[in-house]
Write a protein that binds this DNA or RNA. Structure first.
Lengths: 354, 354
DNA sequence: CCTCGCTATTACATCGATGTAATGTGAGAC
DNA sequence: GTCTCACATTACATCGATGTAATAGCGAGG
């Protein structure tokens, strides 16, 4: 309201409003504590030393005014927002949800906020995200891409730090992954152990192959080869969407035209649960008539009927490693590509117990 | 590099860096298009009219420079970030995940980003979130509280717009909810229809009651009363954590000391799936020996063995309504509390089919 | 008593976008 | 040919926090 004299403008209204409610700023805190705004800032950041008494006065003033820093302003000034993005195909998928859970949890422990985006397996959407990322509202991105070779995700110099989850190849970004090929191979071997030879695989994509599907199919085939079992194309059950609904329906159709395999390896637990439902509806007993296995070790799979044999791995480790790679790259963008592999194990449960 | 003359300082270095990569600003775009920064801003916002040719030049310049607006700066200036917060107890819970999925989806359609937080059912954490919300990085908050009467969530004047999900009472915030009481009552009635009288309820909390647990327990008891069935305390199976693990274990312990009820109403689908697993392990047939029902209509429940009878409701409608309430309140903070009720229906599936 | 040197504090500019108020430009009317 | 009016465009200040460089304070050493 009051204009100063000369070049200096002395404003008396410094607090800002949020929906009509006043909010204190550093200036307000400074005035109340009888110091300069920069000193308040110094107290908050702790880099520049502040004397004991002054620090106390400032802290008290902050408390009295219920001061909350404006992160937009800080983000503008610092060039960093303290927010990371997490992009997943579909949050409603139990596997994605568990990953998201761990990432949000680990991020929070380290003081980061997480902004979630769904790509819906759409390369276009994945591209949008990179752009969004560049708008400085997020400092980095953890991306779980689906489509192989999606040129959309060109992890280049003009983009913020990115960590990919999963087995995208041909990308230069940092990456955390589980060796799906080896895991699928081992699971197939485990299913074959009790002498089963007619082992079907559920989840082969008909059209555009996802990187994950290719890996798991490859591992499955490698195991058969290792066992000397000839590859039987009629045991590859395709399933366009990796959902229980799609899996249940695909298996239902399949069983109408094919004999029952001795074992069924589903490429995700979600699909396995759809499959279990179909088998149960047809009166097929698991594991007596057919052994079933999944992949991901999702919580619900453990309580499926029967409990689902699956490929298990430490999802929290994935979150921890992804965040480590991301923060390290944010600190130093120059170092080369880093790839972290997460161990897996075969969890044999009731659905394949012979 | 070149200093201007007089009071005006003409800077030639206007683009900013992000990890060593130059990023164009409005100034750069303006210079390239031969207009002022404000005109560029006008082109983007579309409020102030800009002549055709000028607009074209600006748009071309933006494209050439690969311009991306800095949202921190915009947020600082406008006081709004375009981000809303979503706080849920636990993302890994299929129900929460599905809700999150729909909210993220609907929010994206309306141009909002979503920042996710987990409260872990911790009132303290819920409080932190409100503070965080005030830091202007989020314009509003959708909160799914768990604990009843958590004084932490004091939806007051100094806080950003909040919409609560669920049946928190005694709060003045806008709210979207499903009538758990009525739904639980109807489900209990449905389970009793074929003449079942010994109906157990799984999910009663031992210690601190959640609002939801109270509602569902109440509905269950109301149904029994309506049916003239005396309330039998030994049919109330408590379960401290609403997870399949906890439910499976609680039921296992329960069955060791009690006869098998005729029906089991679990307060969530997740718990019901844990229960199904326990029943199967004990050789109890569902629905022949006992009918089982859940609540939430989670995807995996539909493919449980047997398919789970449940209380269903439109989760996308919850998301849509929550966002509508939130955006309306952000536009006008003065109007009174609004409460939206979402319809439910009883989905009878194989787990209770007699 | 004065200066040196160290530390705590301050004034000022800055990050990028945008509202405000003022300026510039053109067509149309007299 | 001049004046008005409407509209496109510009200069400047601002949002809030913080780095930079300069200042103030203060004890120790000469």
């Amino acid at each position: 309201m009051a204009a100063g004299l000369g070049g200096n403008i002395v404003s008396t209204t410094t607090s800002s409003k949020l929906g009509g409610v006043v909010r204190a700023t550093v200036k307000d805190v400074a005035r109340r504590a009888g110091v300069s705004p920069k000193t308040v800032s110094n107290v908050m950041n702790g880099i520049v030393p502040v004397s004991g008494p002054t620090r106390l006065r400032v802290e008290q003033a902050m408390a009295e005014l219920d001061y909350v820093p404006n992160l937009s302003a800080r983000g503008l000034r610092n060039g960093r927002s303290g927010v990371i993005g997490l992009a997943l195909p579909d949050l409603a998928t139990p596997f994605s949800a568990e990953i998201a859970h761990h990432i949000v949890e680990v991020a929070h422990e380290q003081g980061w906020s997480v902004q979630i985006e769904e790509t819906g397996s759409d390369p276009q959407r994945e591209h949008e995200l990179m752009t969004r990322a560049r708008s400085n509202l997020i400092d980095g991105l953890i991306l779980n891409p689906v489509v192989l070779k999606e040129s959309a995700v060109q992890v280049g110099v003009a983009l913020p730090p990115v960590v990919l989850l999963g087995e995208v190849t041909q990308q230069l970004a940092d990456r955390v992954f589980v060796d799906s090929f080896a895991a699928a191979r081992d699971m197939t071997l485990a299913l074959a152990k009790p002498g089963r030879r007619r082992i079907a695989a559920l989840g082969v994509n008909r059209g555009r192959q996802s990187a994950t599907a290719i890996q798991r199919t490859g591992g499955y085939e490698a195991a058969l080869q290792q066992l000397g079992i000839p590859l039987d194309g009629s045991l590859l059950i395709s399933c366009d969407s990796w959902t229980p609904a799609s899996a249940a329906e695909s298996l239902r159709e399949y069983l109408e035209g094919h004999p029952l395999p001795e074992a069924l390896f589903c490429f995700t637990d979600s699909m396995a649960m759809g499959a279990l439902n179909t088998l149960w509806k047809r009166g097929v007993r698991v594991p007596d008539d057919i052994a079933v296995a999944g992949f991901d070790d999702v919580v619900d799979g453990r309580y499926a009927v029967p409990s689902l044999t699956t490929v298990s791995f430490d999802k929290r480790a994935i979150a921890t490693e992804a965040l480590r790679l991301l923060t390290e790259r944010m600190a130093d963008r120059s170092h080369g590509q880093r790839i972290v592999e997460i161990d897996y194990s075969i969890e044999e449960r009731d659905s394949s117990r012979s």
